[in-house]
């Protein structure tokens, strides 16, 4: 009897503790959400007091090139996703199914290249792109993003492809399917969880990238959402926190929705490649 009472007290204490931790985790987000609803533009706001308004959201959509930025973000993320997925599905199929000389060495080299922070070669890419006239173009950014995400894709999907029994393919081969048909008809449907998680990771990566997006894009109208948001708070004179907060919330919502949709697959889709290694 005494021990159940003790246990209850312990659980109560633990619950209180976790409520505090959750609050700590959410406070910055909640505060910004409140800021985005506060009236009074400029920097003279008094926080959560005053009336709540959606004015900031209207302003950010109508007065700033928000829709243009959104369009750029969508073009870049979809373009990158297509390029990265097409190249990496082919390569990870080859790595998973064929034996060829230098395979393991190539996989290790890819891992090493992936460990190199891309920021460090940014200047070299900048010079290269100037030469190739790819600065200030969506195609240029798509190449950069796809190039770095391609390695992640190969590693992440190869592990999953390995777990698909090869007998299924052999049956189809006897029926006379070519390799390309095998990938499209058999591998891709079977590996759907890994492919979806990889594609979504690419999408999120591009959506969140601001450094290359601001360094390689020279005009405000070609910015992505990330670049535009960065610009909103970096520009000293037009700085307006409520406006910035509204933009921050708008930019995060799609990512939050996607994230919580695939969260269930996240652990399995991400670790299938790594654990086996």
């Amino acid at each position: 009897m005494k021990s159940t009472g003790k246990k209850k007290l312990y659980l109560l204490f633990l619950n209180l503790f976790f409520i505090c931790v959750c609050l700590l985790a959410l406070v910055p987000v909640l505060y910004v959400f409140l800021l985005s609803l506060s009236s009074g533009g400029g920097a003279l706001i008094t926080g959560a007091s005053g009336s709540l308004t959606l004015e900031n959201y209207r302003k950010i959509i109508v007065e700033k090139p928000f829709l243009q930025w959104l369009f750029n973000s969508i073009v870049l993320s979809v373009g990158t996703m297509l390029l990265a997925m097409i190249t990496s599905i082919g390569a990870s199929y080859a790595f998973s199914r064929f034996r060829f000389r230098g395979k393991n060495a190539a996989m290790q080299l890819l891992l090493l290249l992936n460990a190199f922070p891309q920021i460090l070669s940014m200047f070299a890419i900048f010079r290269l792109f100037r030469l190739m006239n790819l600065l200030d173009s969506h195609a240029g950014l798509i190449f950069i993003y796809a190039g770095s995400m391609c390695i992640f894709g190969i590693w992440n999907m190869k592990g999953y492809f390995d777990s698909i029994p090869i007998e299924i393919e052999e049956a189809a081969k006897i029926d006379g399917s070519g390799n390309l048909q095998l990938i499209l008809r058999i591998i891709m449907p079977l590996a759907r969880p890994a492919i979806i998680v990889t594609a979504v990771m690419v999408l999120i990566f591009v959506w969140n990238e601001y450094l290359f997006a601001t360094t390689f894009m020279l005009r405000e109208e070609s910015y992505t959402l990330a670049g535009g948001l960065y610009q909103l708070q970096a520009n000293d004179y037009s700085r307006s926190w409520p406006l910035f907060s509204a933009a921050a919330i708008l930019v995060s919502v799609p990512i939050l929705v996607i994230f919580f949709c695939i969260q269930k697959h996240m652990v399995s889709g991400l670790t299938a490649g790594g654990v086996k290694g």
Partner: peptide
């Protein structure tokens, strides 16, 4: 199959 990925990388 590896060629497009390797070119890009």
């Amino acid at each position: 199959y590896c060629l497009p990925a390797f070119t890009l990388i």
